[in-house]
Amino acid sequence: MSKCKFEHLIDEYLLNRLSEKDKESFEEHYFNCSSCFEKLRERDIIIRTIKNNPALLLEDKAEVRSSVLASFKKELAAFLTPRPLALAGITALLILIVIFAIVPRSQAPAPNFFLTDEETVRGSSITLISPVIDMNNIPSSFEWKKLGDNVEYQISISNHQLLWKATTKENRITLPDEVKAKMSPGEKYSWQVKAFSPDGTLIAVSSRVQFKIAGR
């Protein structure tokens, strides 16, 4: 059988993929070309046999799967010999050492969760009442909003440095004369209150409020 230029249309024709026009041209062709007709007839029987016996071909799918599984098992078995297994163990150990011993050291230090005197925490806070604006005279007392019973407050007053620090269970405190003496008109001061529970745990911090004592 010689090769015919229409031969590639055999499958397309039998699988009904040709347009009506191409189908008619091909039909006219095989009425004239015995080579194409013989191939067409043979291919038709092959395709119909395949169509009617898919199980013959599907069995190979199981074979393909089983052959893939078999080769995987083979590879696994080859891998699970003592030498590669020992190598894998050593590699895993080295990786664990790197993860747990070396990597943490090279990282930045963990954040510090202890508050210094100059730090504040967000969340629970104390509202300062007085003084919160500029004063004509040196204030004689400091007052803030009460948080609850059994709370100890620590007040600190600063200008460029810490001027005075005191504790009280009240929500106000009178400024001692010796501290008043250190304060002078025209200067800026700031104050802050921290609240502690009876066991000494910091429970609230106020914002640091500034006030200025008017000059004479």
């Binding site: 395949i50 071909l57 599907l58 190979d60 799918k61």
Partner: peptide, 9 residues
């Protein structure tokens, strides 16, 4: 078999 199954069937 797989090729002709997909192509013809």
């Amino acid at each position: 078999r797989e090729a002709i199954y997909l192509y013809y069937y």
